[in-house]
Simulated scan of single mutants.
Amino acid sequence: MGSTSRTSSAFTIACAQTNPVLGDIDANIDITELAIRDAATRGAQLVVLPECASGGWAFLDRGESESAAQPLNGGKTILAWSALAKELNIWVCGGFGESTADGGLYNSAVLLGPEGPVSLYRKVHLWNTEFLAFDPGNLGFPVVDTPFGRVGMLICYDAWIPESFRSLAVQGADLALAPSDWVPNPHQQEDMPPLAHIVVSAGAHSNQMYVAAASRYGTERGQEFIGQSAIVNHTGWPLATAGDGNEVIFAEIDPRGTRESRRNDPFNRPLWDRRLDQYTLSDLDTDV
């Protein structure tokens, strides 16, 4: 993996919703290829796919997870996405089940350019039963230079942990890519936006960065997924949102906006206005 020089300018980003077939890598390569080609044909320069787009999500245990996992280097899905990025001269970010030579299994996301993989992220905060199928991520929150500015990744439930966005922001990230598998919220109010939209909008606003979150749709082993992908600007307002089916959404963004906002807004400077000496950063009190 490497990085390319940054030449910040406006560009078109897309979030493509897919409905993976659990455990079927070949079928999911076909599904994601159609989505990537569709997005590229309509002008996307960077395409974001959902969490676990390579093999599905609802694995019962490590054995099932391992059967649908693949290495970053030489994995069929990564090779297919890389070939598309090269052919179409675009960038692709997508979630995949990652296996490693030392027996690790991770819920991962990769960022690929026309020349191949540029960055790898492993989901740090595992949700619900994911502990049965994956190991917690161990790479932190990498941020890399790209033609689209400084870019980092997080995955789904990571967005609910404020330190995820903040870890990217303090490294100067202009854009957070968030492959996701959002599920229904039992407390969702019908007259309100999906809670996931509120969470990513808050992360974007409080860290002054763009967020592109691609969420899957469909049902897998009884677990419903809501779609509802969202692209949010650096002030926290949605630029594009999706419904609950097979859909691609687009937005034009300019990462220079993040830097201008951070430097020049006299009222909203959350990164600079932090009071680190006043925060308690120890472990959670067991009585909370």
Score class of each variant (00 low, 15 high):
8 S>E: 14
10 A>I: 01
19 N>Q: 15
24 D>K: 15
26 D>R: 14
34 L>Q: 14
35 A>M: 11
36 I>L: 15
40 A>V: 11
40 A>T: 05
44 A>Y: 05
49 L>A: 11
52 C>R: 14
53 A>V: 03
55 G>M: 08
59 F>M: 09
62 R>S: 12
72 L>A: 13
77 T>L: 13
81 W>S: 08
82 S>R: 11
88 L>E: 07
91 W>H: 12
93 C>G: 05
95 G>K: 05
96 F>K: 08
105 L>I: 08
105 L>N: 04
106 Y>G: 03
107 N>E: 05
110 V>A: 15
111 L>K: 03
116 G>F: 03
118 V>G: 02
122 R>F: 04
123 K>H: 05
127 W>D: 04
134 F>C: 02
135 D>N: 07
140 G>L: 04
143 V>L: 05
151 V>A: 11
152 G>Q: 09
155 I>Q: 09
160 W>H: 15
164 S>E: 04
166 R>S: 11
168 L>E: 07
170 V>H: 13
172 G>D: 06
177 L>S: 10
178 A>W: 01
180 S>K: 08
190 E>W: 09
194 P>Y: 09
196 A>R: 08
198 I>T: 13
203 G>P: 03
208 Q>N: 06
210 Y>M: 10
216 R>S: 00
221 R>E: 06
226 I>W: 00
232 V>H: 07
235 T>P: 00
240 A>P: 02
243 G>H: 02
250 F>E: 01
251 A>E: 00
253 I>L: 05
256 R>L: 04
263 R>Q: 09
268 N>K: 14
269 R>K: 15
273 D>G: 08
275 R>M: 08
277 D>H: 09
278 Q>A: 10
280 T>D: 14
286 T>P: 12
287 D>R: 14
